[in-house]
Simulated assay, not measured.
Amino acid sequence: MVVAGVLIIDDEAESRQHIRLIIEESQYNYLSIYEAGSADRGLVLLKQNQPDIVILDLSLPDMDGVKLGKKVLELKPQVSIIVATHLKMFDMVQLCMNEGFSRYFLKPLSNVELLTSLDRLLLPNLMKETNVLGNAGAPKKPVEIDLGNPIQSVIRYIHSHFYEPITLNDVADWVYLSASHFSRLFKAEMGVTFIEYLTKYRVEQSKRLIKVTSLPIEVIANNTGFANAGYFATTFKRLEGKTPTEYRSLFSGFMSE
């Protein structure tokens, strides 16, 4: 999956359990969750399990939480730190942000606060992994054309560019074939039409985002190549037998406070 897991460092067992339940009953229930009641134990688990997110209480029995956060970032600079604490002090918030911590919340951490933070922190990796949006603004590596295998060349193009507008005429021109001839070749080799294949592939990519993020359906539609949310919902239901919202509810209905 996208991340190795989440490490919760908090000396209050009730707080750790609260956070664990939010994650386990959400679309992020695939994440491994590790718990530590002290800074020393937290550092051991960090080294052993290499989590990508640390949820940290600042009031620990054996080390100042900010100091621990700095140690965590020294050991694993790419980790994201979410602070969940009773300490309501502007200076402390500013200090944590200056040290490179990602989020600062007061206890008790709400479902929306935690899951929205996970969306924002995990989505860049998800987008990179699925080639959605995260690559849209980056220089694209050209897809090589194999004129001896034009259909497979187009398949590779679809997998790399499905979030962009793609037409049959465009890809036919790209492989130096007439639209009608390309269309016949594609159906003969793939067993479905070009549009059917492209649409199904886009829906499959959207399903990943629906399952593991709480992004609005409209955003997912735009990021997977659909012209608008209405067309996306209609197409999704036709192929999957349920709406995107109904599909999401199979994995999590836990986004309320």
Rank of each mutant, 00 (worst) to 15 (best):
Y157R: 00
F182D: 02
I23N: 03
T85I: 00
S110V: 07
F226V: 02
S102N: 09
Q17L: 13
A227M: 14
E196V: 04
L198K: 03
D11N: 12
L46E: 02
V112Q: 15
D91M: 07
L123P: 01
S249H: 13
E196Y: 12
V44C: 05
A179L: 08
E257W: 11
A36D: 00
H159E: 15
R16H: 05
V212S: 11
F254H: 15
P244K: 09
A136S: 14
L215V: 09
V203T: 01
L73D: 03
N223G: 10
K128S: 15
L185W: 08
S206T: 06
T167C: 09
K71P: 09
P142S: 05
S178A: 07
L168Q: 10
S32H: 14
F194V: 02
R156K: 15
E257R: 10
I55M: 09
Q94I: 10
A138P: 08
I158C: 00
L114G: 05
S80D: 15
I151N: 05
L209W: 08
W174P: 01
G134W: 12
S117I: 03
E204M: 11
I155Y: 04
E99W: 07
I9T: 04
G69C: 04
R41N: 14
G253N: 13
D52K: 12
I155T: 03
V54N: 04
I155Q: 01
R41H: 14
L95H: 09
N125A: 15
L46K: 09
C96W: 04
D62F: 12
V79W: 11
L114P: 03
L31P: 03
R156Q: 11
V83Q: 04
P108Q: 00
L58W: 10
D11C: 00
G225D: 00
N169Y: 13
I195G: 10
D170M: 15
K107F: 06
E257Q: 09
L7W: 11
F254D: 12
K128C: 03
A227C: 07
I151V: 15
S15M: 14
I9Q: 01
I23K: 08
A84V: 12
V203H: 02
S38W: 06
A84M: 05
L60I: 06
P165F: 00
V143Q: 01
N169K: 14
L31H: 06
T235S: 11
R20N: 08
K47P: 02
K207H: 02
E24A: 04
E189R: 15
Q50M: 14
R20G: 03
K237W: 08
R103S: 02
M255I: 12
S214C: 10
A13F: 12
V143H: 09
N135L: 14
L75N: 10
N149W: 11
V72E: 07
R16V: 01
G191C: 03
V203Q: 02
L106G: 01
I82V: 10
K211T: 12
E144T: 09
K88D: 14
L133P: 07
L58D: 00
A229I: 06
P77I: 09
F186V: 05
N131W: 11
V66F: 05
E25P: 04
D57K: 02
V72N: 04
H86V: 14
K76E: 06
V212E: 10
R16Y: 08
S160N: 13
Q78K: 13
L122C: 07
Q205V: 07
S252R: 08
S214A: 13
G148V: 11
G100T: 09
M255N: 15
Y247Q: 06
E14L: 13
L106T: 03
I158Y: 02
I55K: 10
